[in-house]
Design a protein around this nucleic acid. Sequence first.
DNA 1: CAGCGGTGAAATATCGTTATATTCAGTATA
DNA 2: TATACTGAATATAACGATATTTCACCGCTG
Lengths: 329, 329
Amino acid sequence: MSEQKPVPTMKDVAREAGVALGTVSKVVNGLPVGEEYRVRVEKAIKELDYRVNSYAKGLRSNKTFLVAVIMPNLVNPFFIRLVNCINKALAMRSYRMLFYATDFDPQQEQEVVLLAEQQKVDGIICLSYNPNLKIPANIPLISIDRYFGALISCVSSDNYGGGRLAAEKLVENGCKNLAFLRIGSKLTNEPNKRKDGFISACEALDVPYTLKIVDDGTPYSAFEEFLQEHLHDGKLDFDGIFCVTDSLAYQIINSLKGMGLRVPEDVQIIGFDGSRHFGDMELYCSTIVQPVEEIAETCVSMILEKNLLQAPSLLCLPVSYAYGGTTWK
Amino acid sequence: MSEQKPVPTMKDVAREAGVALGTVSKVVNGLPVGEEYRVRVEKAIKELDYRVNSYAKGLRSNKTFLVAVIMPNLVNPFFIRLVNCINKALAMRSYRMLFYATDFDPQQEQEVVLLAEQQKVDGIICLSYNPNLKIPANIPLISIDRYFGALISCVSSDNYGGGRLAAEKLVENGCKNLAFLRIGSKLTNEPNKRKDGFISACEALDVPYTLKIVDDGTPYSAFEEFLQEHLHDGKLDFDGIFCVTDSLAYQIINSLKGMGLRVPEDVQIIGFDGSRHFGDMELYCSTIVQPVEEIAETCVSMILEKNLLQAPSLLCLPVSYAYGGTTWK
DNA sequence: CAGCGGTGAAATATCGTTATATTCAGTATA
DNA sequence: TATACTGAATATAACGATATTTCACCGCTG
């Protein structure tokens, strides 16, 4: 069994190069140092295969180049894309992502925020379902999709505009009678504004509409019952449905097909999110695309550049419409 | 603008409780301490809202409760499920996940391993495409899907068995002439054994087969050309296709439909992975399911319990077959 | 040539913990 | 009664960096 030699420290490098400790630190951090010193130190670093101990550095400098990302899970495609983009944006700036999943549990969310605080991360990006979350005082925090008041910056899509756009597109494509289906948290959060936008557009266009809104945890069958109720002589009461997420849209399409209805011939569907099966493949169905990259980029740049105070506390980034008929024709 | 008061340290707690520093440390870490001391310290901790500084702790104790997870990306569903499960398995044990994406780039993989080393993580779980990866000497590392030799533990699915199973299932369902389609890394890695298993089963069952294997980066159209070449009078030369991943299976099914062929009536498809659109929804098509949870659990328990040396260096976990006709009927 | 600021590396204090050494009651033993 | 032994808390060293202070040396000036 081979004895593994201990990891070299700055002290070892200093001894090897015949210089003082502080000089090595300066070289490592790119601060000005006499040329001959720099060369000697660099040689010693290479020779010993030295690397800084980020824990010692973090302790002394109070800077860790770590950002906590707090999300419910890595199952929902929207969360996944968000995490992926945030990670990229962080890596670009030489920061690393410490990931925490909370499973939509307010208590876990609170615990995890404390853990992140204790881990001395340089910032927290958080998609939380806990309206009473106690925000740490010493670490910048940015929220996604939940507004915590004027003191905490919140980034989200333009959900209201997205709701309007969904209704407008359905009408543009010939729909005369709309429905809005939603399952989700009953807490007030930004995505809930999709409904308001939808209603506002329907009323502006003078198009009749029906709402079916249920809370998280409700079995999906509630929607199937709703559809059955509105099915008369093999025809549905509405010819255009806006589903609050792509995931719901996907299920609804399956149900409709099971009921013998054709999509989009008998009823048109539009979802929300813009998620794809395998990253770069076509959409399930038409949808309102959330600008995930921009959301991620905005969060990261705000948290690192500390524009938190100047910036407006609620940022709504523009959504777009995408046609995704292929799969469903 | 309110002055924020400094974060309290153990010293502050000790002063507040009127005890020595070491006593506070013992209380915080659950070591035996006289009852009256414990009570006083706990009171002071609550009063000051004290939390340990994990950087100071990590520096002194050489233990960080951090594990690096290195993956190409968070786009491929297999990687995503793996990351999600690994994160859960770590959180269960009070460890945290530091995530690094490498984009399949061997150089980035190497850099990221060095970063993880410098971050003093307690272990590294790594799915790498760099066969020459320099493995750190001081940190336990477990590889997924790539065998680095007897000294590094490698965990993967039973890819060979999965390949056999895929062929057997197609034949069982009436196929008389098979094809195997693969796009992927030309480096030798565990998933490449799917082909060997497939061939072995075909030969054992005395069923003719065709192979189409292209390297990563080849445009997908190569497969469409291949299919066209084997299309005569609206009929394909084979009636069963094993695609090396679900992602490829999905694309192939689309192509076949575009060519006027029906799945599964004219040609049956089986994929590999077992990935689903929205977490809990039905499969795109029949597939060989990788035991992602078991892979994750195995990696985590091996790396934390340091069974690295006793354990066999290559662990192949059993796969299973799953029927997923719904989407494609 | 004594004195003086300016320069830049060396020396040292410090970050907040854990680990080790030390102290000191309180008891047991001869 | 003096001595050795426990056990538990206190005091202090150490972890490996960065931040701050010290100080030797330089060229200038009066």
